[in-house]
Design a protein around this nucleic acid. Structure first.
Lengths: 346, 346
DNA sequence: TTTTGTGGCTAAATCGATTTACTTCGCAAG
DNA sequence: CTTGCGAAGTAAATCGATTTAGCCACAAAA
């Protein structure tokens, strides 16, 4: 029944040419001086015969797929899941599909996926990269494939990119904790150490502490590989509390780290915020009503998605992007909840 | 540089036919009696000229895309995000891409998305449906498009499907709560009321209570529309605790409902499990270390994904599926944590 | 009368692979 | 001396749209 009627069938049954039918379908009838009557007839016939264009044929001819790729480290991470959802909505409203790829932060896998999607002729890609530098993307940009980097970016890169003010967010966190009278800090990050977001957050935090004359002892700067967060955090926290040398506050650099720290602090029966305050980067639904609720630097996920999609669409449609809009940095908010409000020390 | 070399270029530069090159590329060289030497030459040239086949052309000719669709109510829900991740991994290992679509439980949107993906000629689809009956899928099955329903299914439907033992899980929950000496139950569900998982869970729960001579008062059977969970739960819980007529336990039928109930019980300062016990359907990372930790019926997400993908792949490869494997029901586990262990009542 | 223009439409090429239906050659059997 | 057959290929059709390059008839201008 369906999927069998072709352009040629329509043309034949109407005694006109395929060209004409094609033009009408694509709304180019007027531009090519096809009579209104004829156009009507064609549209009527299309409805009558229940014609649906073969998207593969069209895509093949025009070299487009109406599909964009979304590449992140792990789609089941809440942060990326929400980004995905937002982007999917924008895409759907513009007639695009989204294909998702999780890289597990494996650089080779990411490259492979990008190459794969490129072969598949996706019209563009939105990428949260795990790579070490921008060279791969500079090539990608040179090859003309529309793409936008989100979340993690590189300084001075050629590709369009959307990120948040990681340095600023970290400074907010630091200033807030300092105000609580805290002097002994731990930072919990993921490795490897080329991830821009993580580095910016560490830098912003350290700088602000430095300005207050405080340094983070190396042993309190925890770095856990992406796939070993649970293990590393468990071991490190245990050692803190066994040795008795304990930070007064922890700054956890993504929602997974925050959750994992909460988990093991609970297991160790460490009371928050009395024994240790905690503030995380990236908010998650349940941080608002755990006991205690968790302070965070909140990222504007909807804005990130929106900006990224818009920048991508502009590239796809070959609109040139003004240089100042080529690299977007969005502000973050601090949300202070119970976990970082120290009982007064005075 | 890339994306420009075609089959014809290879053929020409080697002085052979396109047919030959195509056969070699697709590993049909031997079957067609092409000499090993010749095959070598072709492969060599392909590497040398950095040829990459145009996937669109191939897809167009063969009517395939190496893409599958995944349709769920909301990809940012933890349950579906994890399903998505699992399926994506299987797909990637088999050379498939996954395109995701969130329906927001809107029946018309779901149908539209399915039609859209069908037009796009995806090779198959995995669907957690929001529809009211199986008729749409019976048609889909008749049309020959490979697909598998997951999570939510319909009795006696023609399409392959993978679900969990919702009735059994709900019975486990009920039995466990009864053992705690609880007699007054509330069930928190989403509407509309044609969602099979929700109905089975309610049914299993009610049946088990019935066997113990207990009924759930209608006012304690909460049904919140998918997009109004927060509001409805807030209002209902407030009214419970204002009126003072209070259930001893709540059974929350998905992870969102569980979280939302936790949120408002916390706001109302209701202590768990002393004032009310709670057990949820579907486990989520953080239920294991909230205070109190939350009991759940845990679903085998990896198995669901694996079975669904395998069933889909078989259809795509036109292997017939034995009738007994056409409809898979997977077992669930009960995980008892603090939230449902009542202080003894004796 | 010839040229120029234009409104309305079409034939054929094209995209790049896969697939069908041969061809050609050499050699052995009849 | 023909026929048959397998080995090693090839030319051309095909998938279904888009796009290029015109065609044809008639009117207005030169």
């Amino acid at each position: 029944m369906s999927g069998k009627v072709t352009l040629a069938d329509i043309a034949k049954s109407l005694g006109v040419s395929k060209t004409l039918v094609s033009l009408v379908i694509n709304g180019k009838g007027d531009a090519h001086g096809i009579r209104k009557e004829t156009q009507e007839k064609v549209l009527e016939k299309i409805r009558e015969m229940n014609y649906e264009p073969n998207v593969l044929a069209r895509g093949f001819r025009m070299g487009i797929t109406n599909t964009i790729g979304l590449i992140v480290s792990d789609i089941s991470n809440r942060f990326y899941a929400r980004i995905a959802r937002n982007i999917e909505d924008f895409a759907w409203n513009h007639g695009y599909n989204v294909v998702i790829c999780s890289t597990d932060e494996i650089i080779e896998k990411e490259k492979e996926q990008i190459r794969f999607l490129k072969e598949r002729k996706v019209d563009g890609m939105i990428i949260s990269t795990s790579q070490e530098n921008s060279s791969f993307f500079d090539e990608l940009a040179a090859s003309g494939l529309p793409h936008v980097l989100i979340d993690r970016t590189f300084k001075g890169m050629k590709s369009a990119n959307v990120s948040v003010d990681n340095v600023g967010g970290a400074r907010m966190a630091a200033r807030h904790l300092l105000k609580q009278g805290i002097r002994k800090f731990s930072v919990v990050a993921i490795s490897p150490d080329h991830i821009s977001t993580i580095n910016d957050r560490i830098m912003g935090f350290e700088k602000t502490l430095m300005e207050a004359g405080i340094k983070i002892p190396p042993k309190w700067l925890i770095r856990a590989p992406f796939d070993k967060i649970d293990e590393v955090v468990r071991v490190k926290l245990q050692s803190f509390y066994q040795e008795g040398d304990i930070p007064e506050a922890m700054f956890t650099l993504n929602n997974n780290l925050t959750s994992t720290c909460l988990k093991y602090l609970a297991k160790l029966s460490v009371s928050i915020p009395d024994e240790v305050a905690i503030i995380g980067f990236d908010d998650v639904f349940y941080f608002g009503f755990t006991k205690p609720s968790v302070s965070v630097i909140k990222q504007p996920i909807d804005l990130i998605s929106e900006q990224a999609f818009k920048l991508l669409l502009k590239q796809i449609n070959k609109e040139s992007i003004a240089k100042k809009h080529h690299s977007v940095v969005l502000p973050v908010d601090i949300i202070i909840r119970e976990s970082s409000i120290k009982p007064s020390k005075s």
